[in-house]
């Protein structure tokens, strides 16, 4: 099977007054129609990796890659316009907090209709029918009611479901989810993940799941990439997480308190070795 997305030597650098900050330093991976998790702590470059693929890097940053290929399209070489057309249509992104990514002055239904109409020529009633069906497919119990609500009128979990509905309506082949459930309560988190899981499987999408939560990612994804200081330190199958080789991955797994496990006082901490960042 050919890869849906190929990333080779991706670099993102921010030029600031006080010098250059290399957020991502040579990341390479391939993605098929699978669930790939990217895990790392803050500042590891995991979010910037996702944004660079999406083409959402802030303008003062410099993105370079030897190869950034999405389904045969060379993303490093296409116009901003072509990039925009891809975005939302064939590549979609879900961000952490639906409060900031939904338009506060437009009802949820209208936002979904607009995003349908942005990508295809379709009548208004047809589009709203599709929007309702999509809201139903993210397991919103009363889609007609939610359709007419404004983003601030729904809970975080509902907002994130609406966001997923909006992002998946155009049937993208690649979905990038950046901490999609971190702002949600644990019980809601699992509901949202279940919906995401089902949709991704049904439609055969590729998913990049970016998160700080190694345990959650490994329970959800097929494969996990662990990032540290802008680089990939380890790639492994999610099921083989317990056999992780790199001391950073092992340290991350180890330092979390675990329910029911033999209690450790004090908790083992991560002894960051400078050579990891090399």
């Amino acid at each position: 099977m050919s890869a849906l997305l190929t990333v080779e030597d991706l670099r993102v650098a921010f030029h600031t007054r006080t010098g250059t900050v290399d957020a991502v330093r040579g990341v390479s991976f391939e993605l098929g129609r699978e669930r790939l998790g990217i895990v790392g702590e803050s500042g590891s470059g995991k979010s910037q990796t996702g944004r660079a693929i999406m083409g959402l890097t802030p303008p003062h940053a410099e993105v370079t890659a030897r190869k950034l290929d999405f389904d045969g399209i060379d993303l490093t070489n296409i116009s901003a316009r072509a990039r925009r057309d891809l975005r939302g249509d064939r590549i979609a992104m879900i961000l952490q907090d639906p409060k900031y990514s939904l338009d506060p002055v437009m009802t949820i239904g209208r936002q979904i209709v607009e995003s349908i109409q942005a990508h295809e020529k379709i009548g208004k009633s047809e589009a709203s029918k599709r929007a309702l069906a999509m809201l139903e497919s993210v397991q919103i119990r009363d889609p007609a009611r939610v359709y007419d609500l404004y983003p601030h009128e729904v809970s975080g979990g509902m907002g994130q479901r609406a966001m997923i509905a909006m992002m998946l309506i155009a049937n993208p082949q690649l979905l990038i989810a950046d901490e999609p459930t971190s702002a949600l309560d644990v019980t809601v988190q699992l509901d949202v993940l279940r919906i995401l899981d089902q949709l991704v499987t049904e439609r055969g999408m590729g998913l990049i799941f970016i998160s700080h939560d190694l345990r959650l990612v490994s329970s959800f994804c097929d494969r996990v990439i662990v990032m540290y200081a802008g680089r990939i330190v380890e790639q492994l199958k999610a099921s083989e997480l317990n056999q992780a080789q790199h001391p950073y991955t092992r340290g991350l797994l180890d330092c979390m308190p675990r329910l029911g496990a033999a209690d450790r006082h004090p908790l083992p901490t991560l002894d960051r070795k400078p050579e990891w960042a090399l």
Binding site: D213, C255, M256, T269
Partner: peptide, 13 residues
């Protein structure tokens, strides 16, 4: 972050 959390929890204990 998880690793920092461990340090702070240890400190609190």
């Amino acid at each position: 972050d998880a690793s920092v959390q461990a340090e702070v929890l240890n400190l609190l204990e």
